[in-house]
Amino acid sequence: MNLLDGLWGVLDLLLVAVLLLLAMAAVLSSDRRRSMMLFIVFGLVLALVWARLHAPDIALAEAAIGAGLGGALLMATLRRDTHQQTDQFPQHPVVLWGVGVLVMVLGTAIAWGLFSVLPTVEQTWRKGAAVDAQLAFSGVSHPVTAVLLNFRAWDTLLELAVLLAAIFGIRALGYVRSAYVTEVAFSQLAVWLVPLLILMAGYVLWAGAHSPGGAFQAGALLAGAGILLRLAGYSHAGLPTTRWLVRLGLVAGTGVFLLVGLGLLGWGQGFLHYPIAYAKWWILLIEMLATVSIGMTLTLAFMGGIPQKEAA
């Protein structure tokens, strides 16, 4: 028993060492590309840490977004034509060290504050956990489930709204020039991988229907397919070429979510308070549309906006 705990301790130490090394290297490195690579590996190790801390949903989100899509978005800012890719600090070393000390003092203060309140917080939680356990046994799990579903719906709706705001910002910047060279060998590889990514997106979405999460991770996978198509030479990355269809796709998730919510309100239910019997199907439908919207949004973010019509 003690040996097992000891092994967990060693694993924790190793994971934290790797994580902190990666973060320091990513922030301090003077080479921009190197920093990005380190940041992607940082995302990977962070996913392991989430797994170790019993947070499977967050591990999945991190794998899809932190280590995957976020990395691709970062890489999209790299351009081979700018040779200057080293980032030297313009400040005097004294400033660098001074700010370093300042930041560490701030960190220590935060840690001190946090650890002084943590015991009380934990006590409150312990009580909360006890209440949870009693509820589960007294047969009133029904309202708890309803509240949970409700809460989750709000969560997803607001996430979608934030993403929609981001894509409005990106679209407001206008059209972009295409930035990638087509390579024949690559298009053949992409043909292999795109269906796999789409299939996986469908699976993640379906698996997410009975556990939290799903739409965003699935959307990230769809966006991965879009990025591959873009790299393979499809200037629209598989998105519809008609503009109104793109617009429709982008707002579909948030739009249908709102419509369903308002419809339920009109029907005498609470906002986004699905009738329990059909809740699963409603959620699946909405999350399916949300996945499409998210995938399109992230693909457009990778391309930097709507592509310009190419002069054939």
């Binding site: 977004i65 932190g66 899509l69 976020g70 978005l73 970062l74 999209a76 800012t77 934030v162 993403l163 705001a165 981001a166 910002g169 990106i170 910047l173 949004t297 992230l298 973010a301 930097g304 906006g305």
Partner: peptide
């Protein structure tokens, strides 16, 4: 990630 995407563009 939304904010990052916008900022990067």
């Amino acid at each position: 990630v939304s904010a990052t995407a916008l900022a990067l563009v």
